[in-house]
């Protein structure tokens, strides 16, 4: 009887792991708490660094696993180890007997309204990067008509003790520069500002994106964390920051302010980690057994990890982790079969 593997989370990590497990001859089962597969990728328009369409990437991931059984709008309620199998109770009364569990529940976007001084949900001109991405993709959600001045605020909900997320979320700087270019592309005579503390363009070709933003699109990069946002008489969003490089406080009124919300641990991970008794770091991300050599291993026998559940990641990293976990599951199951 081929082994069944439970994959918690239908985002890029889950889809890729399912595809690999199929190829390795196992029978993966995907459990997804939302009503669609693809996680945040499904809500994204274009990806950095070269603006590939998120839709085509998603299609490439979903196509090979279209026949894999998927439980949508379902969460794991209980999982107990029986011998070398797991009996997993799913919401809606369903149940699965699986030989291994792969946790790839991914991340949540930081709720921007928790950063009160940025006025998300209070001033109309303030939106988040995912709102903007959704607008680029569908034109719905927020209304943006020909803004003459647009601002991007980096590190919203990342590298901030005040909201208990001291870590850097890695992808928002590149996304900000990408979106800045997209805004200039769409509204050529708009003026775009990026307020950053450190511009972390760490990957290959990210620097080219940054260079293009600088000299082709003339995006203006100001090194200074935005301190507060308010609305002036005409409804424009007024922001205050310090240009730390010329040590001058400055203010500017914008038509649109985009908050680059960071990655925090998945909101439902607390409950899930309880069920599977995984150990969680104090910022909520799951701690793998060894952050260097065993990122895929949860430290509990038969339970594996992949993707942003263990911390902020780009999509290429997530996919390679998914493949690593699939292989780890394969090794685990095959030498278990020998015993």
């Amino acid at each position: 009887m081929t082994d069944r593997v439970l994959i918690i989370g239908g985002g890029p990590a889950g889809l890729e792991a399912a595809n690999q497990l199929n190829l390795l001859g196992y029978k993966p089962v995907i459990v997804e708490k939302d009503d669609t597969l693809g996680g945040h990728l499904a809500k994204w328009d274009r990806l950095f660094p070269e603006g590939e369409s998120a839709e085509t990437v998603l299609y490439k991931l979903i196509k090979p696993v279209e026949h894999t059984p998927v439980y949508l709008n379902t969460i794991v309620e209980q999982a107990d180890k029986e011998g070398n199998h797991f009996r997993v109770k799913l919401s809606g009364g369903k149940e699965e007997i699986v030989s291994a569990i792969l946790v790839c529940a991914g991340f949540s976007l930081f709720p921007a309204e928790k950063k009160e001084e940025y006025g998300y949900g209070i001033y109309n001109g303030v939106i988040t990067s995912s709102d903007l991405e959704k607008w680029f993709k569908t034109g719905k959600g927020v209304n943006i008509n020909n803004p003459s001045k647009v601002g991007f605020v980096h590190c919203v909900g990342s590298r901030d003790e005040k909201i208990c997320n001291r870590q850097c979320s890695k992808v928002c700087c590149v996304t900000a520069v990408k979106q800045a270019c997209e805004i200039k592309e769409k509204f050529p005579d708009s003026e775009v500002f990026c307020f950053y503390m450190d511009l972390r363009m760490f990957g290959r070709k990210y620097e080219d994106l940054y260079l293009k933003a600088q000299n082709k699109y003339r995006v203006r990069f100001i090194r200074g964390r935005v301190s507060e946002v308010s609305e002036d008489f005409t409804g424009k969003v007024v922001i205050k920051a310090e240009d730390t490089l010329s040590s001058k406080p400055l203010k500017v009124s914008l038509d649109l302010l985009v908050l680059m919300t960071g990655m925090i641990s998945n909101s439902s991970i607390e409950e899930l980690s309880g069920i599977l008794s995984l150990n969680r770091a104090e910022d909520g991300f799951i701690e793998p057994a060894d952050t260097i050599t065993k990122m895929y291993d949860s430290g509990k026998e038969g339970i594996f990890l992949a993707g942003a559940v263990t911390g902020p990641k780009t999509i290429p990293e997530t996919l390679s982790e998914a493949r690593a976990s699939a292989l780890a599951i394969h090794n685990y199951l095959s030498n278990k079969a020998i015993q």
């Binding site: 500002f193 205050k240 240009d243 001058k248 406080p249 400055l250 203010k251 500017v252 009124s253």
Partner: peptide, 9 residues
């Protein structure tokens, strides 16, 4: 005393 704040508008 004049404000040292720069108003980009």
């Amino acid at each position: 005393s004049p404000s040292s704040q720069i108003d980009l508008d």
